[in-house]
């Protein structure tokens, strides 16, 4: 079992914020490596883009372990959603070589809220 815990159980953060990320795992058999990744990807109508911004590698890990990293979140790009595309930040914890993984999506923006790109339409009431 792989688990990602974030500071105060929050999932939305301001750009450049310092946060504690705890990666923990309880593995049935030894693995070569566990990686914690901070990445963003796009989702939408077109092809998917993905960028791994930072990786923390733990070689020859114990079967049960827990590691906390203090991480400064990047300044950009911001989390946003439009009709055509969303940009999603996430932490991923992956065990190699079996590929077991867990993903925790987060929001990064100036006011810790996802930026929504749409023209709100209104109905008369």
């Amino acid at each position: 079992m792989l688990k990602i815990l974030l500071s105060d159980d929050r999932t939305a953060f301001e750009v450049g914020e310092m946060i504690d990320v705890t990666a923990s795992w309880s593995l049935e058999s030894p693995v070569e490596r566990v990686e914690l990744r901070l990445l963003w990807n796009t989702v939408g109508k077109g092809d998917r883009n993905l960028s791994v911004e930072k990786t923390w590698k733990y070689d020859q890990p114990l079967n049960n372990d827990k590691i906390t990293e203090s991480i400064q979140l990047p300044e950009a790009p911001y989390s946003f959603s439009g009709k055509l595309v969303s940009l999603i930040w996430a932490f991923e914890l992956i065990a190699f070589p079996n590929g077991d993984s867990v993903r925790q999506e987060i929001v990064i923006s100036p006011d810790a809220k996802e930026i929504l790109l749409h023209n709100q339409q209104y109905d008369d009431v």
């Binding site: 939408g44 109508k45 339409q121």
Partner: peptide, 21 residues
């Protein structure tokens, strides 16, 4: 001026079930 309420007509791409992924 008539009162207005926002129309729920926006589905963000991340929630669109027909997204490429």
């Amino acid at each position: 001026k008539a009162k207005q309420k926002p129309r729920n007509n926006f589905c963000p791409a991340r929630n669109n079930p027909f997204a490429t992924e």
